[in-house]
């Protein structure tokens, strides 16, 4: 498969997953801030790592709200709208690799977004719900209409890598309320917050169905990090990433895939060897830092060694011989 195409499919998977996550988190954040009467959007802006940019933009347009910046602003490369515009741009260049159904749905989402000239705060809920529904439709269509070839594996790699990253950000933003001690006394407001974390990760029903009667910060964290069944947990995402990476690189020469494969495998083993008690001991925040750094290393190895590897001078000769042989 063409390297550029593989890389773009990988990023299409990342952007679509990212958009779905931002829309979901924003919707929950919106409801929580309405109900609690507390403006907590700023924590979401820091979850998507663009605090400094927000303050810079605020200096230029004093009316800018956190929610507009997070959802609508094209000056914020991590905003929902920017993410979807980039996903659609990639998809436009990948039309011969995705099905017509997938393309039309991505394009429809883009048109839905692009037709809005102005940000209207009261539309946040509709906007986020609709985006979330449509991105999930796209991911479902992708699974059911696109050829299961190498490209689809790269798309999945991007999707799971991004999902692992987003879930880790959700945990990181709230780790102080999930762990016992400090302000946490397990009162109604804590439970309310823990529920919000679960909803941010689409995990509320999963949490209940796994037999947890009490809403408890530690159990929430455990689900989001270790669950083998919940499809957004860190452990689940890393395992899926490993599987799809191996599928994608069946034909890739060993020297090109070695670094990334080692990275994913070690991360998978590392999570498997830990448990919740140890996480508390070592520090949840420190673990999330470590986890995110590993994801960055994996992404870099895939990009440098597989997508953008420069063939050596002698390589074309060798490949030519292999082809004719």
């Amino acid at each position: 498969m063409l390297s550029r195409v593989a890389e773009n499919l990988f990023w299409l998977g990342r952007y679509l997953e990212r958009a779905e996550n931002i829309a979901r988190m924003a919707r929950v954040e919106h409801e929580v801030s309405l109900e609690s009467g507390q403006e907590i959007w700023h924590s979401l802006v820091s979850t998507t790592a663009s605090n400094q940019l927000f303050w810079n933009n605020l200096a230029e347009s004093p009316d800018l709200t956190h929610s507009e910046f997070l959802i609508f602003s094209m000056d914020n490369p991590a905003s929902l709208r920017s993410t979807l515009v980039r996903a659609r741009e990639l998809a436009r260049g990948l039309r011969e690799h995705i099905s017509r159904e997938v393309w039309e749905e991505i394009n429809a989402l883009y048109l839905y977004l692009a037709l809005r000239k102005q940000y209207i705060a009261s539309d946040i809920h509709e906007f986020c719900t609709e985006t979330q529904r449509r991105t999930q439709t796209i991911l479902g269509l992708y699974d059911n209409t696109v050829l299961r070839d190498e490209g689809r594996e790269w798309f999945r790699c991007g999707m799971y890598l991004e999902r692992a990253d987003m879930t880790s950000r959700i945990i990181d933003a709230k780790y102080h309320i999930l762990l016992p001690g400090g302000d946490s006394i397990g009162g109604p407001f804590d439970r309310f917050q823990w529920m919000a974390v679960l909803r941010s990760a689409s995990a509320r029903e999963a949490y209940r169905r796994m037999g947890n009667n009490e809403v408890d910060g530690l159990l929430v964290a455990e689900l989001l990090v270790f669950s083998q069944e919940f499809p957004r947990s860190l452990a689940f995402c890393v395992q899926a990433l490993l599987r799809h990476f191996q599928q994608a690189t069946v034909l890739t020469p060993r020297r090109r895939r070695a670094a990334a494969e080692r990275g994913v495998t070690l991360l998978h083993l590392d999570i498997g060897a830990r448990d919740m008690e140890q996480l508390i001991e070592d520090g949840l925040h420190e673990f999330i830092d470590f986890f995110q750094q590993r994801l960055i290393d994996i992404d870099r190895a895939i990009t440098d060694d597989i997508f953008r590897a420069e063939p050596g001078a002698g390589q074309s000769q060798r490949m030519a011989t292999m082809d004719s042989g």
Binding site: S3, R4, A248, A313, S316, M319
Partner: peptide
């Protein structure tokens, strides 16, 4: 254009994830 490269053997190759293809 950047997806293609011409080898020392004056053959055109496509840069793929698994190597070069004629």
């Amino acid at each position: 254009g950047s997806d293609l490269t011409v080898g020392d053997d004056d053959v055109v190759y496509l840069r793929s994830t698994t190597g070069l293809e004629r």
